[in-house]
Design a protein around this nucleic acid. Structure first.
Lengths: 219, 219
DNA sequence: CGGTCTCTCGAACAACGATCCGGTGGAGGT
DNA sequence: ACCTCCACCGGATCGTTGTTCGAGAGACCG
């Protein structure tokens, strides 16, 4: 009764809200990873009971959807830039954001319909249209660019961020032990000289943009 | 005692083995989806107790890793084809396989080091090398192509296969209701004329391959 | 003061991954 | 024929998870 911390001042911090839950969820995911996100742990960090969260949020999946959309607020939408420079900036920011929150890569397999994602997708389509890209190249360009970022971030997060050094070393040894079975992979594979992810990404992105640009002239 | 079905003939089917577990896991995943895969349910389909599985397999994650690699056995490795035709065939098969087992897309965020995946990656590198692609274009090409397939399959599986009709309709209505907020997306977005995923994929793939091909001549 | 609405939380439930430990059956030796 | 051994099996059980239920506490309105 008198021991219970029931008033807001006693619990400390601002009142609970959907936004505060999502902010803390992102922080928890950043610090401990996806598998450590528990409704109980999240509630504990917020100083409340675990079941209280369900008043502000319907399910745990909702928390994940909201957290996933929240991080895309950091992706700046370029203004006034030429189309190719604008898209390069947007997609670079997109990739950097996904890598800054490595847990996000594993969540990309769910529908992304949050306002932040939609606004950036809208910019992508609008920029392509203004650049003169028409169907059927338009859909192919938007899909291709999005999928390229998603795939890159997914693979990069898998190997560079999520995997601990122990896993990476085991993988390297695993490959070394089967060097004769996968010769090309052992000689040129990603585990040999893997520190140029950035320039590899940039190269692939430019190939795509070159292809898109070529469709503008020819129609 | 006498009621217990303890001999192999009474339990029916061949003796339990790692391979049989993986086969049944793939079948279960195909029929019911990723979240329905339970050690108990899997054991039930195999006619054994759930704890028996742990004799053949260390953890549930191992089952997932094995199932993920198993489906790549269906990706044919082209022989004797010209490099660009060979890569087009391999990547097309790759994408088709991922889409035939939609649960696989969500699992791509884990290290893929199984023999089937490694053999196909080796073919990818070997083909690029034989075509005359050298560093730094080689890594960029291998990464770019892989990431493009992965991203495409992930997004496509999310929207076309995993999402039920109800979710898709809700998404369409959601977009329709905010038509003024995302004008370009509403006019040209993926939910408007979404039935050309195949040709969009082919277009994007050709942009990438064009870029790779251009690096061969110039070095 | 009474009533209603918003918000909080302890207790509880079903399901899950995983482990412990006691089996069971058949192959191989003697 | 008997024993031993060991690959293989599974019932009971533990700790944890997402989620529900119902009982409240506090604020605001009449």
């Amino acid at each position: 009764m008198w021991l219970r911390a029931s008033t807001r001042e006693e619990r400390g911090g601002p009142p609970l809200s959907r936004q505060r839950i999502v902010e803390e969820a992102v922080a928890l995911l950043d610090e401990e990873g996806a598998d450590r996100l528990t409704m109980r742990r999240l509630a504990e960090r917020l100083g409340t009971g675990s079941t209280t969260l369900y008043w502000h949020v319907k399910t745990k999946d909702d928390v994940l959807d909201l957290a996933l959309d929240a991080i895309f607020a950091a992706v700046r939408i370029p203004e006034g830039a030429e189309w190719r420079a604008g898209l390069t900036a947007l997609i670079g920011d997109w990739r950097a954001t996904l890598l800054r929150h490595p847990w996000s890569a594993a969540l990309l397999g769910r529908p992304m319909l949050g306002p932040n994602v939609l606004a950036r997708s809208d910019f992508l389509y609008a920029t392509l249209v203004r650049a003169g890209v028409a169907e059927p190249h338009l859909t192919a360009a938007a899909f291709g660019l999005s999928n390229f970022v998603i795939g890159s971030a997914l693979m990069e997060a898998t190997w560079l961020v999520n995997a601990d050094a122990e896993t990476r070393d085991a993988a390297r040894e695993h490959m070394d032990h089967q060097r004769d079975r996968y010769p090309a992979l052992a000689a040129h594979g990603p585990l040999t000289a893997a520190d140029d992810w950035d320039s590899s990404f940039e190269r692939g992105l430019n190939w795509l943009l070159d292809g898109v640009e070529a469709t503008i002239a020819t129609g």
